[in-house]
Computed example of a mutant assay.
Amino acid sequence: MDSSFYESDVAYTGAPSHNGKRGLGTDKQPFLVVLSTEQENQYPLYIKLHEVTSDSGNLIQEFFDQYVKMSNERKLNTDGKTTYNILKTRLQVINEAIDYDKEDHRLYFLNKIISNLNQYLLHVYHGVSKRMLPLYYGEYEWRFNHRKCRTIMDKIKNYITQSGVATRKMIRDYVDQYAMARGLEIS
């Protein structure tokens, strides 16, 4: 991702928690969302979704090193979590608490995207197992990032003609390998 402004948050996907807790105490699946925009708090350009095992600064730093172009001229808006402070030497991190009651708060579009993703998983797929979540994150990310593409059918045609048949076993094996490489729990 290459932009002057980023927004990021760790969100949670899943059914209501059995323990009744929210945020860090929940047993829902955490995932990291990074959104790029042309101007601060403006219409989003691209997103990147990534499931994480926990909400930690080291995981966030690894993700940003791999996927986000960083420099001191670029800004990152977050919601006040201290886990983003690890990036302060490489980005301008605006890490303040947000008043979500205000209609035009700093993470407005990011929160809309997270809400849409959760509704998409709930109402389109009627729930997804934790094991298959990376595939659905990838699909949602691809759909969002290609939403303005005029020749989408040409791209899809090229992908289909260049790809082979993937059996259910092949997909299951790939998901298992992915989970093991990330150190995720296979359920």
Rank of each mutant, 00 (worst) to 15 (best):
M1K: 13
M1P: 10
D2C: 01
F5M: 04
F5G: 03
A11H: 06
T13M: 12
A15R: 11
A15S: 14
H18K: 13
N19F: 02
N19C: 04
R22N: 12
G23Y: 04
T26D: 05
D27P: 13
K28D: 04
L32V: 02
E40V: 13
Y43D: 06
I47D: 02
K48P: 01
E51D: 00
G57V: 03
G57Y: 00
N58S: 15
L59P: 02
Q66A: 07
Q66N: 08
Q66V: 07
Q66R: 13
V68I: 14
K81N: 15
T82F: 08
T83R: 01
K88P: 03
T89L: 05
Q92V: 02
N95E: 04
A97D: 14
D99S: 03
Y100K: 09
K102A: 12
K102D: 13
D104M: 06
H105I: 03
H105R: 06
L110A: 06
I114D: 02
I114F: 06
N116K: 09
L117I: 08
L117T: 06
Q119A: 10
V124K: 12
Y125P: 06
H126I: 02
V128M: 01
M132Y: 07
L133S: 07
L133N: 09
P134Q: 04
P134N: 01
L135D: 11
L135N: 05
E141P: 10
W142K: 10
R147W: 05
R147I: 08
R147Q: 13
D154Q: 10
I156N: 04
K157Q: 15
T161F: 08
Q162V: 10
V165F: 14
A166L: 15
R168I: 07
K169M: 09
I171H: 05
D173S: 11
V175I: 13
Y178F: 03
A181M: 10
S187V: 13
